[in-house]
Design a protein around this nucleic acid. Structure first.
Lengths: 341, 341
DNA sequence: CGAAACTTCCAAAGCGCTTTGAACGCTCGG
DNA sequence: CCGAGCGTTCAAAGCGCTTTGGAAGTTTCG
């Protein structure tokens, strides 16, 4: 059943029926009720395609799914998506996943922005120089970002306090007596990796320690990379007594390296990992249970979707700039540094 | 620029331009070339919304994303989605994620099917009695399934050989001398869990062993659940010498339970896990490296998307019924059963 | 050479909705 | 008693595409 038929059934014009259904004020309460009741009764549902054509609004938000990158580094993506889904479901918004390879990610964004298949896009893991942000800004297409944009002015975003998290974690390790600390960070071009790097550095400076004791490595945060990196660090002469991990996956690799070298955690090696709360891989399920800096990526996804919807509803870009605190949770993978280094 | 303007620019009718662009035969090669060149030059892209309205085809495939379920049990979902994305990108199909909670999952499917926002849906993890399949069949809405439908007749699907995988894994353990084996399976209502159960049972029967030596547990396959289950089994009088795990996550929980009880893998306990190839958590990155039955969920995602597109193109439901073999890969988590049980 | 059969192109009618501009009936102040 | 003002409703014009049913122009063939 379509609008025309419904209108005919009610002996009303399409205009009135449409307005009644969409809550416009210029229709009397009485007829509105009649219309709503009839729509209910006939199971009328307006055609999204037609509405889209008529209004130019897609009633959908876009997420670019970079298959390569996500497959390797982002089991987080599901959690994040779950958050996005949560709020978009409330508003009846669809989520359009635009697949892409890293190479043509920018093309995907262009397509989304120009095609009108979505009203707004959510962009995650911003980079220090981010072509996607540049493109969307130029096209004047609405977007919000999850993570810290390199130049946050005029851009709505939500991020967690990566700086604070790693400063806190590093200070904590220093207080436990650790001096040589390895930081296994994400790739250098991500803003979050930069923030974490600064956080750790500041903690060293604050403790009056020379920052060459901080051994920092940037890489794609896979368990495999982390394993290699940890192995190398732990076999070197200047063996660290603690390792800061950018993610739970990194911790997995580090744990393996330690186990293979016969090092016991936390006796010989302390580990702190950042945990985005993947319910599938809870930090408590590792052995030993991991000390983490924790923040919910799902909640962040939900919030960023809210922002996206607000943006569609007319909110100014740059209206929201939230930085969520991160909590340090001490569990079993950290201990005082061993006596002799 | 829209079709009308483009046509005006070329001094041709919209009809001709539209046909030229869509490869219809009733337009001469010469004009087709001219049209294509002009479209290219002006950067013309037809409006998806308008096309959708006119044709009734959405040019999109739907995936219902059950946020609750996936968050806890399906980091696999990303991998799977990556596969789907891979092929749908080739055909320029969009992927519409329809969020839902377990409760109203069926509503989501109904909405997808009736709204015309997608042309076909992909359904995963079919259950023994599956309301979703029933609904879509009744609505005569095109769908394909990833996993084994309870009544496969007239339904296109692709599945991995869960039966064979667990038969093989179980036989392998029996050959190593294991007699008491615990199977930590998925929830009973999933067809894959049934298939795995049957596979293990057959292996016991084939070896002439009483099947009460097989201690089977159905549950949502989280690390936490697996941990509890393994802990209980390993502390019981009839302690198993081997545990079959439904997923890598399950193995994580089992490893923790073993570690806490001072059991060494594989000396005191052998572990075989099914591995859907999450690149984020490779079986090789565990310590010890896990013996697994392996199959690529990503490849399956890609294939099921192909089937979905074929379905849209007019292929009959039930035309495809593929069962992919699963390979047993022996690594470091299995060994001969300890001498005295 | 004229009818039949193609080939190539077009005008116009939708697809199902929103939204503009106008009309209709009423009330009300002057 | 009349026109202004208001609340309610409607007819019709899009939105940008596809597709039907011809209409020209070209070739084929008896």
């Amino acid at each position: 059943m379509n609008l025309k038929e419904l209108a005919a059934e009610l002996h009303l014009s399409q205009t009135t029926v449409s307005r009644a259904l969409n809550g416009y004020p210029e229709v009397s309460e009485k007829t509105r009720e009649i219309v709503l009741a009839a729509a209910q009764r006939f199971g009328y549902r307006p055609s999204p395609a037609a509405r889209r054509l008529a209004t130019g609004r897609a009633h959908a938000l876009g997420v670019v799914f970079n298959a390569e990158r996500n497959a390797f580094m982002d089991p987080l993506f599901v959690e994040y998506l779950a958050g996005v889904a949560e709020t978009s479901a409330k508003e009846g918004f669809d989520i359009l996943i635009s697949p892409s390879t890293p190479r043509d990610e920018i093309v995907s964004f262009g397509r989304l922005a120009r095609d009108g298949t979505v009203d707004v896009v959510i962009l995650s893991a911003p980079q220090v120089t981010d072509a996607r942000i540049a493109l969307l800004s130029e096209l004047k297409f609405p977007f919000v970002v999850h993570g810290r944009p390199p130049a946050p002015a005029g851009i709505s975003y939500i991020d967690i306090d990566n700086f604070g998290a790693f400063q806190q974690a590093t200070s904590f390790l220093i207080q436990l007596g650790h001096r040589r600390i390895t930081l296994i960070n994400g790739e250098e071009h991500f803003t979050f990796a930069q923030d974490r790097s600064r956080g750790a550095a500041i903690a060293f400076a604050a403790a009056g320690l020379p920052n060459d004791l901080l051994d920092e490595h940037f890489m794609s945060m896979t368990a495999e990379n982390a394993y290699r990196c940890a192995r190398q660090a732990l076999e070197s002469d200047a063996r660290p007594t603690a390792i800061l991990c950018g993610s739970i996956l990194v911790a997995l690799g580090v744990l393996r390296a330690a186990a293979e070298l016969g090092l016991e955690v936390p006796r010989d090696l302390s580990i702190v990992a950042h945990d985005d709360e993947m319910p599938a891989f809870p930090a408590e399920q590792f052995h030993p249970q991991l000390t983490t800096t924790r923040s919910s990526i799902r909640a962040a996804g939900a919030r960023v979707a809210e922002m996206a919807l607000a943006r569609v509803a007319g909110q100014k870009p740059g209206a929201v700039a939230e930085v969520w605190p991160v909590q340090l949770i001490v569990r079993g993978s950290t201990a005082a540094a061993p006596e002799k280094v």
